[in-house]
């Protein structure tokens, strides 16, 4: 059942071009940033990791308006509910599918982006580990906001306003891992990520039920 839902969600993401959008966004930011601050390799190397974290965070907001709202409007969520499948299961499946379509492609795109920003090898490793831990949380946050704003008008703008304050801990700890040898920031990032991933199925499921009329 879960596998069926995940497979459909992945197929929908692929069909709606949702997979390459965050990737293209990250690469665009990475190629524009040196134009803005100049080709100073030392400066780029020092600030590039943080810029990539901001880009990843903003990229996670791009697919928010097509995560839940189209299926809610098309009656697909109601048809699933009729079959006795809980909303928590629907949100869990969507979270897995959304992360699969968002996390790994973003981590792959980070490699050429890091080359554009002249990041050194150690920074790239720390960045990728941080993204591996942080992208599930970004996916969960985007999905949670999508369930809350499904059915509202101008939900895209509202989604940004709702998600960005909640994403601040992720950004602080995520970017914090880059310059931190002790691993404390990584642990905090993991804790924030676990919390978001754990509450999203329940909070998102409740939001879908409340939005039904």
């Amino acid at each position: 059942m879960l596998a069926l839902l995940i497979r459909r969600d992945l197929r929908q993401a692929w069909a709606s071009a949702g997979l390459w959008l965050p990737v293209a966004f990250l690469l665009l930011v990475a190629s524009l940033y040196p134009f803005a601050v100049g080709p100073d390799a030392a400066l780029l190397g020092r600030t590039g990791g943080g810029i990539l974290w901001i880009a990843a965070l903003l990229a996670s907001l791009l697919p928010v308006d097509r995560l839940v709202a189209p299926d809610a409007q098309a009656g697909i969520l109601d048809q699933i509910a009729l079959r006795g499948i809980g909303e928590e299961m629907v949100v869990t499946a969507r979270l897995v599918a959304h992360w699969l379509g968002f996390g790994p492609p973003l981590m792959l795109a980070t490699l050429p982006a890091a080359a554009l920003l002249k990041l050194d090898g150690a920074t790239i490793v720390r960045l990728e580990v941080g993204l591996l831990i942080g992208t599930p949380a970004l996916a969960a946050l985007g999905l949670l906001v999508a369930t809350l704003t499904a059915g509202l008008r101008s939900s895209g703008a509202l989604a940004g306003l709702l998600a960005l304050p909640l994403a601040v801990p992720l950004l602080i700890f995520g970017a914090g891992t880059l310059g931190d040898g002790s691993g404390a920031a990584l642990k905090f990032l993991g804790a924030a990520s676990l919390l978001l991933v754990a509450i999203t199925p329940f909070a998102g499921g409740a939001a879908i039920r409340a939005g039904r009329e």
Binding site: M1, L4, R8, R11, Q12, A15, Q73, A74, G75, I76, D78, Q79, I80, L82, R83, I85
Partner: peptide, 25 residues
Amino acid sequence: AMSDERLALDMEAPLAKALDFWARL
């Protein structure tokens, strides 16, 4: 089983495939 005014089928998929998702559920 319910049918209302909303189609609840994936628009891009062929009909048999779109219905197959629900048949599997």
